[in-house]
């Protein structure tokens, strides 16, 4: 088992490679999930705060027209 971790004397180069890959990928995944949750929550808050103001807004939105003109 210790021979496995020694990697023929090159452990000091090989394990940092795998550790770095794991760190970078975990960072990307966690960062992406949390950014998505944050942005989607804010976009949802935007929808909710908008709704009571303009009932007719939904139609003008599809038509691409200006809702507040």
């Amino acid at each position: 088992m210790s021979a496995f971790f020694e990697m023929g004397g090159h452990a000091v180069y090989i394990w940092p490679c795998y550790a770095l890959a794991a760190a970078v990928m975990v960072y990307l995944l966690v960062g992406s999930v949390s950014a998505m949750r944050r942005n989607e929550a804010m976009a949802k808050a935007l929808d909710v705060s908008r709704r009571p103001r303009s009932e007719g807004g939904a139609n003008t939105r599809i038509a691409g027209g200006s809702a507040d003109a």
């Binding site: 804010m42 976009a43 935007l46 929808d47 705060s49 103001r53 807004g57 003008t60 691409g64 507040d68």
Partner: peptide, 23 residues
């Protein structure tokens, strides 16, 4: 979507951007 809303300068009092989306 948030950037679009923000660029129209419409925000609610609590800082949440507000305004018709899609224009």
């Amino acid at each position: 979507r948030l950037r679009n809303a923000m660029s129209r300068g419409v925000t609610t009092p609590d800082g949440v951007p507000n305004g018709p989306v899609g224009r």
